Computed example of a mutant assay.
Amino acid sequence: MAASNYTLCDTYASVTVAASTLTGASTLILDCEARDLGCTNGVLSIISISDVDATTIFLIDALALPDSSHPAFTPLFDLLRSEAVTKLMWDGRADALELREVYGVELGGVLDLQLAEVVSRRNVRGEKDDFRRRRLATGYFREMALDISRNPGEYDGIYQVSGMNAALKARNIRDNKDATVLDLQKAQGSGIWLERPLPETLLRYAAHDLSLIAMLYASFMRGGWIKENNVALLKEQSARYMRTFRTREIKDLFDDSKVAMFVPLHVLEAPPGNAQLIECLWCKQQLPLRCFTVRRDAGRVQQRSTLCKLCAALAKRDSEGSRGEWVAV
């Protein structure tokens, strides 16, 4: 998995070669680099794509190839859209938004490893609801441990996601990312991805991310977190996860309100086909009634919060802004 071996595609002809090389693969790895990926200020820089082992890596220079209608992109976009070709990603929500906004490409066949890690907690590792609440009480909601204990129903279905570094550490995978790039991003921000020509250190960094995803995938497979009988469900859940950021404005909103640190409440369990969907006042997700706290007022009229349980918990934690209102069901 030597991520130093990559091909930079900065001509349309080289994109054709990349797509031709990867066509026929049943599983690919996909990642993007950008300034402020998915945000209103976002500018896509690099589309990184490889085979399942990250031994054949292509870095497609989006800035050098601005003509999204060029026929050289057609076979590549077909691969990205294909439900039959699995795309391994780590938190691909913003990547999916960039590809949709820039190229009009709706990703298909995504298996998001960040989501797979969350699903494995309950379905493979056997973590019960009390352990899930303990994660919340020792994580982002650590100041609210008492409230979680007293009002467990208000935290139903809330899962905090793990970052890639935490997942690598948990699976005993050494992350040898270039520290100089990490320092550069801290000092100058993600705008460094708009430099041209891109320094080789950044290109190697982008390629290395694919090798990390490859190692995590292999580890998840060995651990039984991903197996033949759960791939279809993981891909269904990942498809809902990929549609979380419908617009750049929603991505900004998720970042500002910290909702991005959690799995949206409709992702792990699909809403019933005939369910009435309600838009949460904060996160703007279309959710079934089960995702909202419901109560009866003094007149015994059933009411629901205008905030989903996740957003209501975040509002309670921060004690800032609107905590939503109660409306009749």
Rank of each mutant, 00 (worst) to 15 (best):
A275T: 02
G92P: 07
P75R: 01
R296N: 15
Q302N: 12
A298D: 11
S68N: 13
G163S: 00
S238L: 03
D51K: 01
D147S: 08
S4V: 10
A62I: 08
D297G: 11
D175R: 03
R296I: 08
L146A: 15
P75N: 02
Y140G: 10
L99V: 02
W326M: 08
L65Q: 07
S190K: 05
A166M: 11
R133D: 04
K258V: 12
Q285R: 11
D36V: 08
S69V: 12
A313C: 02
T16W: 13
E279V: 15
F73V: 04
R204D: 11
L203Y: 10
L168V: 08
L8F: 04
V119F: 11
Q237M: 11
G157F: 03
A54D: 02
N41L: 15
L168Q: 09
I226S: 02
E269K: 15
F262G: 00
M89L: 08
L88W: 01
L22G: 02
R142G: 02
L111F: 01
R35A: 04
S319V: 10
T180L: 12
L59S: 05
F245C: 09
Q185A: 14
S219A: 15
S238Q: 05
G299D: 12
T180Y: 11
N229Y: 08
S68V: 13
A64I: 02
E200A: 13
C311K: 06
V52M: 12
F254K: 07
L307V: 03
A167W: 00
V301C: 10
P199E: 04
L268Y: 05
I49S: 02
R134C: 07
W225V: 14
Y103N: 09
E143D: 15
Q276H: 14
G224R: 01
R300E: 15
